[in-house]
Amino acid sequence: MSTSASQISERDLAVDVPSSDVPMQYFESEGGISLRGFYELWVYRHLVWMLVVRDVKVRYRQTAVGVAWAVLQPALLMLVFNIFFQLLGRQPSEGNVPYVVTFLCGYLPWQLLASTLGAATQSLVAHQNLISKVYFPRAVLPISATVGGLIDFCIACVLLLGLMVWYGVVPPVQIILLPLFVLLSLLISIGAGLWLSALNALYRDIGYVVPFILQVGFFISPVIYETDQLIPGQYRSIYALNPMVGVLEGVRWCILGHAAPTLSSMVISFVTLGLLLVGGMIYFRQIERQVVDRI
């Protein structure tokens, strides 16, 4: 995800290398993804962490309730939807655990996606001052914005944990697979973040579109309901095109032991995710090369 070094020719090696221990690296205008790009991203992993730490510190330094914000929002929304469905007289979830727990299992991963996607979309534009002054693989920005959301997610999970203890919900053995689904959700976020941050650098109104996408996504993903309680069977494979479907079903399966995501829906989700991620990398790389001149 960076200017890739071209092949070092034998002539260069013959002239330059013997008298020095560091080989010369050549750079030129070159598109495409290269292994070197991923290696550089790895070299700069500390930067990802530093930016995450910075964002978290800045976010909570001048707030009244501090990290409690991360808990407050899902808690309030949980109450609202709980009351709403109680008034409606029907809860769109399996009955073995209270609705609030089912809700949080869907809402927290969704919240992770929603908060990180907004930050990732703005990440290039928000750091234009930085990217015009110093080099680092630009993908560090949407990635660190995404990883930053994980901190809030972990804090909010305390709420879920508390409720599970309170209601005596014992997770089944597949709970050990939970990190896998969280990772999946992060990858979705990174894939979409790569696309959106690059697009937003060129077209600033993308920033306005994201909340709308998220609002629609909120209802076409099993956040406040469960798939098999609401979505008719024949539509499920279309429904599974949304990669968050697989994630949310998976999370509920891990924590609550609810219906496991079907293999076909997982495969569909994976393919969509793969396309999103690879396409995002290629497009981001394309834009990364010219972003400083165009931002």
Partner: peptide, 19 residues
């Protein structure tokens, strides 16, 4: 400093660059 890419040509650097 590799902040922006050249339109044509290439450049070689030996070692780490701090800008």
């Amino acid at each position: 400093s590799r902040i922006t890419e050249p339109t044509a040509g290439r450049f070689g650097l030996r070692g780490r660059v701090g800008s």
